[in-house]
Design a protein around this nucleic acid. Structure first.
Lengths: 204, 204
DNA sequence: CTAGGTTTCCTACAACTGTTAGGCAATTCG
DNA sequence: CGAATTGCCTAACAGTTGTAGGAAACCTAG
């Protein structure tokens, strides 16, 4: 049925690779088309526009991230699980900065249209986002943290991990000693202690 | 000397306001020109291009942020200073999401040109960035943290505050209980404890 | 008050990106 | 082999960035 060629998945995967090469912002329809050796209008057979492309890349990449994290979390609990989880995210972000960028650029503009259309790509991004949220929950639960404190613990952990990685990639830590490589395990140590205290109710 | 009209500062300030209204990405030369009631080419008399504009906005906004933080930090030390500092940043980010966005979008693309030109705007952004870094250092030092652990403490604090605010603005916390308003003070409490432990050398 | 110089702003234009419309050609299945 | 299907193309338009050169408004000096 018809001639073979590009398909939606191939286009999105190529876009993700391009994001790592040139930065997420540089992934435009025309650049992507040139990279794939076709003309811009051709891509409209596979994606419905620039925003659809970006959203689809976000969803695709969020799934990759969840896969990577989930593999790394195969065994262990408590501190070991935390380190495996956090290291997996950080490795992903350092190896694929454009992809990581895509995961955090899913931002709602200041005056976001509340009735924004829920396209397939948006739905996929939401689902993939929840996958990642569930993995964070798994880490927190392995500490034995009560349901009451679960949400708080996830926020604390996510904020710290995400914040550190973002600043690290932005180069904020590059011009002072000690190297970022050294302080990262210390951050995880402090985070482990905090989660432990939450679990045993020794806070407040 | 010459007729009065726009000047560089006015253009940049208008751009910052526009960022809060429409989002940082939406601040383009043409949109800004329309907003100011002039034609696009006119703006090239005041700024040297789109990237110069964005960089200049970043520098301008980083200075505003340092002003706001520094005012809030007038008195207090230790925990009080931490809360004043963190609340000032969070208030700034919530009141001016477009401006806050500008402060964290100063990102180096994956394959950044190492010999990238240091324009006046870039230099201003670097200076303003250092101002903010010094304020963070002030907070940490008020805990009596030794010089050895200073950098680590700043990274821990900055990562957590920045990460929490980013995720909060992105809407990550909007769909679970308790409200973000409730968990924010708890985050600062845990951060205060961690900084206290670093100060008294009770870590490791 | 007038003449110069300075600065602002404009029109015109070129190049590129996003997007739509419609058509040719290659492939696969009956 | 024929025909439906599909992929890709050219043509064209709107919007954006950026350049070039010119006209008008303003301030100051004589």
């Amino acid at each position: 049925m018809g001639r073979p060629g590009l398909n939606r998945s191939a286009v999105i995967a190529a876009a993700a690779d391009l994001a790592d090469e040139l930065g997420f912002d540089a992934v435009t329809i025309s650049v992507l088309a040139r990279h794939l050796g076709v003309r811009s209008p051709t891509l409209y057979s596979h994606i419905s526009g620039a925003t659809d492309l970006r959203t689809a890349v976000t969803a695709y990449v969020l799934d990759e991230l969840a896969d990577a994290t989930s593999t790394a979390m195969a065994a262990g609990e408590g501190r070991d699980l935390l380190v495996a989880y956090a290291d997996a995210i950080r490795d992903f972000a350092r190896r694929s900065p454009g992809r990581y960028d895509a995961t955090i650029r899913q931002r709602v503009p200041p005056n976001a249209d509340p009735a924004a259309e829920i396209t397939d790509a948006v739905a996929a991004a939401i689902t993939a986002g929840r996958r990642n949220a569930d993995l964070a929950l798994t880490v927190v639960r392995s500490y034995g943290i009560s349901e009451t404190n679960e949400t708080y613990a996830v926020r604390l952990m996510s904020s710290l991990i995400h914040g550190y990685i973002t600043l690290e990639i932005a180069g904020t830590f590059a011009h002072s000693e000690p190297p970022s490589e050294t302080t990262w395990p210390e951050v995880l140590e402090d985070l482990d202690r905090a989660l432990g205290l939450i679990a045993t109710g020794q806070r407040h």
